[in-house]
Simulated scan of single mutants.
Amino acid sequence: MSFDPQQLVIQKVEQCISHASSDLKQNFSLPKISFNQRGKIAGCARLQINELRFNPVLLTDNVEAFLEEVVPHEVCHLLAYKLFGKVRPHGKEWQSLMLKLFNLKGQTYHQMDVTKVKGKSFNYQCECGPIELGIRRHNKVLKGQQTYICRKCRSPLTINLSV
Rank of each mutant, 00 (worst) to 15 (best):
S18D: 13
L161T: 15
V75M: 04
E64G: 01
L99D: 14
K82N: 09
H110F: 07
C44P: 00
V57K: 07
F54A: 00
P130W: 00
R38I: 15
P31F: 04
F28C: 12
V9D: 00
C153K: 11
T115F: 00
Q37P: 05
W94A: 10
K86H: 11
I135R: 08
K25Q: 14
C44T: 14
N123T: 11
L59F: 04
E69L: 12
I17E: 03
N55S: 11
N50A: 14
S155P: 07
N123C: 15
C150T: 09
L104R: 09
S18R: 14
C128L: 06
L101D: 09
H77N: 04
R136Q: 11
C16W: 02
S96I: 03
V71W: 01
S162R: 11
I49M: 08
Q95N: 11
S155Y: 03
Q11M: 03
F122T: 02
Y109C: 14
S96V: 08
V87A: 10
A65N: 07
K86M: 08
V87D: 04
L101A: 10
K118G: 03
Q15S: 14
T60K: 15
N50P: 03
L133P: 09
S96R: 12
K105Y: 12
L67M: 01
Q145A: 13
R154D: 04
C128M: 06
L58K: 00
F66H: 00
Q15P: 01
K105N: 13
L79K: 01
Y124E: 05
K25I: 11
K105E: 15
M112A: 13
R151N: 13
K118S: 14
E74Q: 09
A65F: 04
Y124H: 06
N27M: 07
Q26K: 15
L83Y: 02
Y124F: 15
I159F: 05
E132N: 12
T158N: 10
N160E: 14
V71S: 01
P156M: 11
E69Y: 14
G43L: 05
F102T: 03
K32G: 10
P89F: 06
Q111S: 15
V70P: 01
K116Y: 02
F54P: 04
P31N: 02
Q146S: 15
V57T: 15
K82S: 14
A45T: 01
L101K: 00
S22Q: 13
Q26S: 09
M1A: 14
F66V: 03
C128P: 08
A20K: 00
C128E: 06
H19W: 02
